[in-house]
């Protein structure tokens, strides 16, 4: 294998609850994701996909097993070290955007830079980086808008810009189109496809087959185990809105 692995998971197990009632949300999962892959994780509720996402996003720790992210074993890091990993290596995109209210798009995008530990950027440098990220998602004209002044699709673009601003090795998207109408959802997916073609590694949780179709690899979970893991046969990178519109017709 020539392409380096971004994620390597070995016998990852997560058990919830103590004592009598124990739920094995993840049961000895093995998974490797290579740099540049666009992976969709699917499965019914209770299948363990959220748990897997939380562990992959370093928001939670596994009960046992190994998780190696970009060559670094993060299985046994403490809260502060995990925070640093999240800041430096991971960009999150949530279903409900999770932007700070009453805070401008620019300031929302700057947020990860505030908690950045390697090299203090000046305020101007931070603003510049954030502006570049906002331009990349096509929101250069909305920098001073607050979330409540933006549409759902625009809010999700701000969230994507925020995810990108620290140049993460991994983008984690949790139902990124779940709160959006079809049109905005497709716009967001197009944007994600663009990021993918530019080389970003993306892992996306969804239960929508149409959305999963944007990914090149689809992993289905059931009862805490990987049921299927296959390349998306119908996968074809669509990078422009025109192509999306064309495909819909």
């Amino acid at each position: 294998m020539t392409i380096e692995a971004i994620i390597e998971i070995r016998e990852l197990t997560k058990v919830y609850g103590m004592g009598e009632v124990q739920v094995r949300a993840l049961d000895e999962v093995n998974l490797t994701i290579r740099k540049g892959e666009f992976v969709a994780i699917m499965g019914p509720s209770g299948s363990g996909k959220s748990t897997l996402m939380n562990i992959l996003g370093c928001l939670d720790r596994s009960t046992s097993g190994k998780y190696i992210l970009a060559g670094e074993d993060v299985s046994d890091l403490d809260k502060t070290q995990l925070a640093i990993i999240r800041n430096q290596r991971i960009g999150f995109i949530f279903q409900s955007y999770n932007l700070l209210p009453q805070t401008s798009a620019l300031e929302n995008v700057i947020l990860p830079l505030l908690y950045s530990r390697n090299g203090d950027l000046s305020d101007a440098e931070q603003a510049e980086k954030a502006l570049i990220a906002l331009e990349a998602v096509g929101l250069a004209d909305r920098v001073d808008h607050k979330p409540q002044e933006l549409s759902g699709g625009q809010m999700q673009r701000v969230a994507i810009a925020r995810a990108l601003v620290n140049d993460p090795v991994l983008i984690l998207a949790d139902e990124p189109t779940g709160n959006l109408d079809t049109r905005s959802g497709e716009e967001i997916m197009t944007l994600m496809s663009e990021l993918h073609t530019q080389g970003s590694t993306i892992i996306m949780v969804t239960h929508d087959d149409d959305i999963a179709a944007y990914a090149e690899r689809i992993i289905r979970l059931r009862d805490g185990q990987i049921e299927t893991d296959e390349q998306n046969g119908g996968y074809s990178p669509r990078t422009t809105l025109e192509e999306v519109d064309h495909a819909r017709q």
């Binding site: 928001l59 925070a83 640093i84």
Partner: peptide, 16 residues
């Protein structure tokens, strides 16, 4: 709480 969660997700440590 949600604001705290957002900050944590983008890399705020317990000390931050």
């Amino acid at each position: 709480t949600r604001e705290i969660g957002i900050r944590q997700s983008v890399g705020a440590s317990p000390n931050d």
